[in-house]
Design a protein around this nucleic acid. Sequence first.
DNA 1: AGCACGCCGACT
DNA 2: GTCGGCGTGCTC
Length: 833
Amino acid sequence: MGNAVHRYARVVLDLPGVGREFDYIIPSALQGRVQKGVLVVVPFSDRRAYGIVIETCTQSEYAQRMIESVLDDRPVVTPSQIELARILSENTLSPLGAILFSMLPPGLSQQADVLYTWLGSDEIGEVGETERALMRLLVRRGPLRGRQIDAALPHRDWRTAARRLIRRGLLRAEPVLPPSSVRPKVVRTAQLACSPEEAQAQLPHLGRPGSVALIRRQAMLRFLIQEPWPLDVTWLYAVSGGNRADLDYLAEMGLIRLSETEVWRDPLEGIAAVDEPTAPLNLTSDQQRALEVILECLHLSEEATKKPILLFGVTGSGKTEIYLQSVAEALVQGKQALVLVPEIALTPQLVRRFLARFPGQVGLIHSRLSAGERYDTWRRARDGRLGVVIGPRSALFTPMERLGLIILDEAHEPSYYQSETPPYYHAVQAAMEYARLTSSVLVLGSATPDIVQYYRAQKEGWPVLRLPERVQTVLAPKGQESPNVTVKPAPLPQVKIVDMRQELKAGNRSIFSRALLENLEQVIQAGQQAILYLNRLGASTYVFCRECGYVLKCPRCEIPLTYHLDPAELICHRCNYRRLVPNTCPQCGGREFRHYGLGTERVEQELGRTFPGIRILRLDSSTSRVKGAVDLILTHFAHHQADVLIGTQMLAKGLDLPLVTLVGIVLADVGLTLPDFRAAERAFQLLTQVAGRAGRGPWGGRVILQTFQPEHYAIRYAAHHDYEGFLHHELELRRTIGYPPFARLVRLEFRHKDRRTVEQESERMAEHIRRWISESDQPRCEVIGPAPCFYTRLEGRYRWQIVLRGEDPTLLLRPHLSELKDWRVEVDPPSLL
DNA sequence: AGCACGCCGACT
DNA sequence: GTCGGCGTGCTC
């Protein structure tokens, strides 16, 4: 039974919109090569298509046509990945094919090529000139790939000629996935492999006394004793006058270790080299406890069900060190690890520390890689030559046979959700499923955990590891024996709330409060730096009373109305209620009911006027449009070539800027009024993160938070660094209004260039859905909308949405997916904007 | 995705 | 009378 021949293969195709599975016959020539997970070429309809084999079987009712070829004998997805794709397809209502092919590195099918082999003799009789040229080429050079022939016979229509020769049986063509020629950018590095004392003791014995070689080797070793991390070997050659042979000699003696480190460029290159310890750091008792729990889970048997671990550590509490030591243990156990970060360009420190701690074992995936480089990293991981892969959400799909640990840093970040192109999925949910399938340990790290995740953690009894204190890393004087680094607690920055209504009453109409001005003055005097943070998201639609802070709400839905131009009116994005902007405040009768036009330019101007001669940098979408500009701006600021950095969301995270002792939040209320059930949570997270930018260095720091709603709970709790307080308040609110985690949502969105079409289609679909609900016996499900989306127009198209809310709205939609093919369907969307 | 089949409006 | 619009269905 068990060794019955598998003559059929179930294949999923790379044709979006053809998400179904198809059965094919495995030709006897490909027996043994067609296995689960391989990439194949199959005939489909009147064309050919790439497909992934998800199963091989002994029986099939449908199979008629044959698999044409196998592109690569190694599977492109592992069995666990196929299972994961199945689950995600179910959960996200996306076709299986869309999920499976999104797991492959971009451009993999572009990497695919056709190998041409000459079969005939050179006596081919009457043929065209191109045919003859092709034949001569292949006879001379042997089998060639299409791309090589392109290069050899430019501007010739050799493909037509090839087709004719294939028909005559003179030429063979087979699709292949060639080995990538692109290498990741690596440098050879050398590092001390023994204690500095041992190295010191060996100094006199590195060659014949008095020889030049001895002097060179001594110079190399002395340098490595002083710099105890992996160094580019070209450096060593330069400082010692030595060469490769000398290095090999030292390596042979076991004094140094040679390896390769991937080159990684980042905006703070060379500035904060001190925070690159290669040896494990000493841990505080909180850190030690947290690490122990993770290690315990890593030691559990494969079969044991492992719950996700929530690592709840404030900004600067040393989560990275825990990740590093957890990964080290996984590697010792012979397992591989995946480390996901929200945006790799913003986490250079984390990346550098991984590269330094695990030289030669880390693969990076980031947006600056070319398709070829990404493909290469993917292959190295698949071949088991990488122990750790660091990357954004898509890195979760790097094939790893021995996966044992998955880490998601800043797991609350919205960038873990793929909302741009289908399939729409959440990397946190995907990672939870994947960890379960592979018996891996999953660590979700965050300073401000996602409320829904935290609620689940409590309800399902996940380990929650708390790191409530910031730590400061201090490098001990050189030459001291290990540990070379100590850690000590540091305070969180003090946050002062400034009530902008009082400023107005006191006659201050400036965008800066008196408190903020005083503090800016002090900081600049002291030669330190400040960040002014401006939330742009929702700023243009935020209309309120400057005297009392009142915001108009929808009389039906109780959610804040947002202001839109053309026509100028206030809109409820939940139910499409509309009204004009009142002239006076409905609450206090104040005359200043309007919005607070505020951009980074205006802040820059006003700041420049107040402090002549001050050096200002601006980081927003207009200054960062040019490629590399963000790096440049941050580098300038980090080098203290400016006193104040004015910026939007993009400066909220990641960077460690020790000279920054003041953070001013120009208007904290913006964002609170967004028509989204997560608006308060997002605002809280953002405020907490921005506040965390202050006082990362030895001089401490403070935060000035300006607001027209000082009593708002998100602002109050953020100012007190009180996550738990916020959590309880927010959960109670969600419970009463029935939003996640107390209900599930599905968002349906329709886009079209014509406004009327969108409106009509939305109404029509809402009508259909109401009928489905009345005809279904599924649990209650509520239709919210249709209404225009918050971003009413995107890429020249109008957007409307319908939100379904209930215990599981997907049950209702499942039978009707084909009717929704022109709609975006998002299950459990993290935002409704 | 592509492509065929199929049923209603304006054109040589 | 035909050419062509895109709605619906199919591809192992």
